[in-house]
């Protein structure tokens, strides 16, 4: 079955482009510490060569302190990937647990959990993250926590809806009749059947989380300076946009292509996992 899905996925051009870009991004994140020395290449300032346009020596040019932008953007992918995967993963675990309890048991549990989720959901993501980060203090880990809260509410809603439709199906009833304990039924029979909306949501959420993380860094409450997070790069370059626009354009493009690739992959996965679209 998974083979079939894979075949349908690689027939989708957008999904292949997205996957290729993401694979390159992951490779960049993995190899950048071996190519660049963090102290020397990424954060070391050299004002003599500040604000240089892209050239053979500095592929993406240099920033306002003379740091090589190529090294910083490459290195920055590590932050973006770590933050987005970390907070989406964290949100996935918490949201799935909350959503399956609410969906499976219904009644009071459902009301209590879902009204809590609704309250969090009603606050704009950025505002919520700003509040949480200012409460906990600025650090990469706290940023992950702040973004994970939004992810968790998303997952809780999706998982609850899927669990509610699946828990009344006959194979769940028959697993009761087989004598399976409830926790096993949820883990083995219900959650695996909710997997496709979860997978699709994950690809889309990683994209929005990268944007949210960048926005927070842009506002100055994300990853602390001088770490080369993409949003921070964008924010740093904003005063030089007239004389050295590449400082803004290049990290902006990095964010844009990453999110675009994730969305392409998400759309492809959604089509591949939906048996109704089978040709």
């Amino acid at each position: 079955m998974s083979q079939e899905i894979w075949h349908r996925l690689i027939k989708n051009k957008g999904a292949v482009i997205g996957m290729t870009f993401l694979a390159l991004l992951v490779i960049a994140a993995v190899v950048s510490p071996f190519i660049f020395d963090y102290e020397k290449d990424v954060i070391n300032q050299n004002l003599a060569i500040k604000l240089q346009a892209p050239s053979a020596q500095h592929w993406f040019g240099t920033d306002e302190y003379g740091r090589d932008l190529f090294a910083r953007v490459m290195y920055g992918s590590r932050y973006s990937i770590a933050i987005s995967v970390g907070s989406v993963g964290f949100g996935l675990i918490v949201g799935t647990i909350l959503g399956s309890i609410a969906g499976f048991y219904g009644g009071y549990w459902d009301s209590i959990i879902m009204r809590g989720v609704d309250i969090f959901y009603s606050i704009p993501n950025i505002l919520k993250a700003v509040v949480i980060v200012s409460m906990l203090g600025t650090s990469t880990f706290n940023l992950i926590i702040a973004l994970a809260v939004s992810c968790a509410t998303n997952y809780a809603r999706i998982v609850r809806a899927s669990v509610m439709t699946i828990r009344d199906l006959e194979y769940v009833e028959s697993s009761y009749a087989m004598g399976l304990p409830t926790w096993k039924i949820i883990l083995k029979h219900i959650l695996p059947n909710c997997l496709s909306p979860i997978i699709v949501q994950t690809t889309l959420l990683i994209g929005t989380t990268i944007i949210a993380a960048s926005s927070l860094s842009f506002l100055g409450i994300g990853v602390p300076a001088p770490a080369p997070e993409w949003g921070a790069l964008l924010s740093g370059g904003r005063s030089y946009i007239r004389i050295a626009s590449h400082i803004c354009i290049i990290p902006g493009l990095a964010i844009m292509f990453t999110v675009l690739a994730l969305n392409l992959l998400g759309d492809g996965l959604r089509d591949a996992l939906d048996p109704k679209l089978k040709k």
């Binding site: 006959e170 009761y176 059947n193």
Partner: peptide, 20 residues
């Protein structure tokens, strides 16, 4: 359940878990 007494349900189309 399942050991002393077992049950066969009405609709075989939905009585099996599609992902196992």
């Amino acid at each position: 359940r399942g050991n002393d007494v077992a049950m066969i349900f009405q609709d075989p189309m939905t009585a099996l878990n599609p992902v196992m």
